Simulated scan of single mutants.
Amino acid sequence: MVLLFLSVNATSQNQKSSVSESDVNIKKSKKKKKKVKLPEIDLSNWKVTIPEGGGKGGAISVEPPEILNYATNDILKPYMYNDSTKRALTFYAYPTTATTANTKYSRSELREQMVPGDDNVNWTFKQGGTLKAKLSVDDVSRDTNGRYHKVIILQIHGRLTNDQKELIKQKDNNAPPVLKIYWQNGKIRVKTKKLKYADVNSTGILHEEAWTDDEGFNFQEEVGFGKFQIEVKVTDGKMVVSLNKTEYAVYNDFNMKRWGVFENYFKAGNYFQSRDEGSFAKVSFYELEVKH
């Protein structure tokens, strides 16, 4: 918008008023710039994996410090980006051939790194850890029965130490995820691991085959597509998951005590649980904090 302020010096009523270039003071009003609301999430201790192909069909991962420039990273932009209208960090995923080891599903998901750029430093239940997240599932496709596809939004993943890997002669350090938190048809569902045989020995317990899924726990509140808060608190032999500080799932039996043999790391984002053609999910995080 341009504002014109005219200053006219008339010497006579009969003289026609004239406006010279010097008589005109033009002021351009400054357009108010929309403030970009960036999410206040520190990514210094996270790496991200996206459903974009790496070598031999594997997915691409970006670690610190490169991840700190995600907003200008052309590879990450389609899958991890700022939603300035929400002040959120958004993760988008859909089925691709770019998957990680031991899964057929695609993900746009953060992986905790206690030491930036190093997957080899992790934590045990004895050391403990707390994750707090505020997030929303913004959009999800439906299956042929009209039900929304499932999305894993938070995890605690187990990890073998190098010594444990050598002991059981496993090719990698992968151990089962002790915690998976799902968004499922507008509600939050928690699944954890339990031993198949309670008296399994200290070597046998390291094998993935020693563990199986529990029956799962469903929180009563329906979160739908709105914001909600999740807190996961781990201490020696115990794990507590809360939804909006009103409902709690508590795990403190012998399974959690024996899980103490593993190292762990938190995961957060959009681990999409569908291979249906045309399916997708979008998940936004407003807050994400981890403490040990």
Rank of each mutant, 00 (worst) to 15 (best):
Y286S: 02
K31N: 13
Y81P: 01
G117A: 10
N45I: 03
V19Y: 11
E52I: 12
S242C: 07
T100S: 03
G117W: 01
E112R: 01
I26S: 12
L110N: 01
K165Q: 14
F125P: 02
Y182L: 01
F262L: 06
L3Y: 15
F225Q: 10
V115Q: 07
A268R: 00
R189D: 13
R189G: 13
Y251S: 03
L160I: 14
T192C: 12
K86T: 07
S279P: 10
S279Q: 14
T103Q: 07
K104Q: 14
S7Y: 15
E289P: 09
K134V: 08
Q15M: 11
N218P: 03
L3S: 14
K282G: 05
K34S: 11
K291T: 11
I181G: 01
K267N: 02
F280S: 08
D276F: 04
V8G: 13
L6E: 12
L288P: 00
S22T: 12
T161E: 05
L288I: 02
L6I: 12
K77V: 08
D118G: 06
R159Y: 11
K150P: 15
A249W: 10
F280V: 09
V250Q: 06
N69I: 00
D213L: 03
N45Q: 13
S274G: 08
I188T: 06
K47P: 06
V151E: 10
R189Y: 14
E208L: 08
I152Y: 03
K16D: 14
F262Y: 08
S17A: 15
V36M: 05
N255S: 10
W259H: 07
E247K: 02
K150G: 15
D138Q: 08
R147H: 15
N270G: 06
P65M: 04
L160P: 01
K33W: 00
T203Q: 07
S17G: 15
S84L: 09
P95W: 05
K165G: 08
T161G: 04
L89Y: 00
K150L: 15
I205T: 05
T203H: 09
Q127M: 11
K104A: 13
D118I: 05
Q273Y: 06
N174A: 13
A10E: 14
E66K: 07
P78C: 03
K30W: 08
D118P: 04
V115N: 07
D199H: 12
V283N: 02
K31D: 14
Q170S: 10
M256F: 14
T96D: 08
D42C: 07
T90Q: 03
N174S: 14
M1H: 15
Y94T: 13
V178G: 04
V62P: 01
E215Y: 11
